[in-house]
């Protein structure tokens, strides 16, 4: 019985998926995942900006002790 019900449900889902509503559902899902990808750029961009601001200048130094100190300080703040 449960098997029949599952099959009917599957058939209904397949039928809906071929209609304009099914097409809209797919597009909304795709849009949602695209928006999610865009949202995730905030954190990653903030990370890059933070690394550049905090490490770029000290890392361009030739003084190894200064480089080590800058990275150590940065790592401690993570």
């Amino acid at each position: 019985m449960a098997d029949v019900r599952a099959r009917l449900k599957g058939a209904a889902r397949r039928a809906v998926s071929r209609t304009p509503v099914g097409e809209l559902v797919r597009r909304v899902e795709a849009l949602e995942s695209e928006i999610e990808e865009l949202r995730q750029q905030n954190l990653r961009l903030a990370e890059i900006a933070d690394v550049v601001q905090e490490l770029l200048v000290p890392l361009s130094s030739r003084d190894q002790a200064r480089v080590d100190a800058a990275i150590e300080k940065f790592s401690r703040s993570l």
């Binding site: 990370e47 690394v51 890392l59 990275i71 940065f74 790592s75 993570l78």
Partner: peptide
Amino acid sequence: VRRLNLLEWRSAFAEGARLAH
């Protein structure tokens, strides 16, 4: 022994830079 969080770019970049130096 050091902490590395691969899910934080700041952690991976800082430790990567440390080794590269």
